[in-house]
């Protein structure tokens, strides 16, 4: 039962990754692409993390997975901010 739930959660997470990637490929400019990628990937990673925690009985490994999730979230937020700011500067410079 727990296995099935975990697999469902991981697939649900992968669905967000997929939509994020489609957004990255299909959306017209930097800002909307960032929007699609950063948000969809973060929520996707959250579901995958939940699923992995359900599958892994060792609590130490679970803690490591959660730490990885938090680090990726922080890194993705900051790098999105940096890319967006750079893009905004170039955008203003062009005007």
């Amino acid at each position: 039962m727990i296995d099935i739930m975990a697999i469902l959660l991981i697939f649900f997470g992968l669905f967000f990754f997929l939509s994020g990637s489609i957004g990255l490929l299909r959306l017209p400019d930097v800002f909307s692409r960032l929007h699609a990628l950063a948000k969809a990937d973060n929520i996707g990673l959250a579901f995958v993390t939940l699923g992995v925690i359900m599958l892994e009985p060792n609590i130490l490994n679970d803690i490591k997975v959660v730490i990885i999730w938090l680090l990726v979230m922080a890194a993705s937020a900051i790098s999105s901010h940096l890319i967006a700011r750079r893009a905004l500067r170039e955008h203003r410079g062009d005007d």
Partner: peptide, 17 residues
């Protein structure tokens, strides 16, 4: 020359790690 306070904040957390 561009300085990002957000990046600085994250760096303070990340470098010790």
């Amino acid at each position: 020359k561009v300085i990002s306070p957000l990046l600085q904040g994250m760096t303070r957390w990340l470098v010790p790690l």
